[in-house]
Design a protein around this nucleic acid. Structure first.
Lengths: 130, 130
DNA sequence: TTATTATATAGCTATTTAGTCATAAATTTC
DNA sequence: GAAATTTATGACTAAATAGCTATATAATAA
């Protein structure tokens, strides 16, 4: 029996994850894919300080207009940002703060890796010099 | 001034993330990209119960041999799994357990979204029937 | 209405990459 | 050494997509 994403009232423990169905893995993969583009991470980061309209996002990220528009559509569909029209302008806002936790965890993890690698390189250097 | 990944002894707070450099965002994006493929998530899940050699992974995931080999290379380079040769066989193992936390968080998040969406759809149904 | 501004979208190109097949490389067994 | 087994790699194809330009749509102002 596979585990679906909304079994158990929407909460999955790590041990249950082993049995995630291909469909659930597909949703997870899709979510990660949305976060796997530098441009989209830039946009999200630019919204960290609060809601911005498209023009403001373009200015903050220095990306092209059409490009930003497309990325915002992807982020909205993924439920990561929310969209609100105010007159001519459309304001976007972080809708899913989980994202920053995720990034933080990845940052920490990568930092540790980088630190370990540089330590290993240093050890290697010492061995060479010896 | 941009924040690099290994500033502050490898620990970044959420508030600092706003100022991540494009280079740091690139590393984060790359990490997420590795996790954005169903096949790789399948492989990782198959390793949840412990180390497996390539043949065992192929059996567990039902993916092609060359394909698995390539994915394992990508996962290894990303520091997500580790590689150990024992005779003819090569055993892979989860090296970065952060991954399961990440998946769990995404699962929870997605579950909540799906629940909310289905509730909204239900509300919509009630309105239509009324 | 017309003009202007803000955002979205269609069409296109170039790049990336997952998957497959064939083959190479490495290890063990006979 | 030869054969068999396990894993890795190179070549190729098909599909996905980021970014661009041009254009469409929507809202406001004149």
């Amino acid at each position: 029996m596979y585990m679906t994403l909304h079994s158990n009232n929407g909460s999955l423990t790590a041990s249950e994850m082993t049995q995630l169905s291909p469909a659930a893995l597909g949703l997870i993969a899709e979510f990660f894919k949305v976060l796997s583009e530098v441009s989209r991470l830039q946009i999200v980061c630019s919204l960290k300080s609060g809601a911005k309209n498209v023009s403001e996002i373009i200015e903050a990220t220095e990306l092209g207009q059409a490009n930003v528009s497309k990325h915002l559509r992807i982020l909205t569909q993924a439920g990561i940002v929310s969209r609100e029209q105010r007159g001519v302008c459309v304001y976007y806002e972080i809708a899913n703060p989980i994202l920053f936790e995720l990034c933080e965890m990845v940052c920490d993890s990568l930092s540790i890796q980088i630190t370990q690698q540089s330590e290993q390189l240093e050890q290697l250097g010492k061995l060479r010099r010896a």
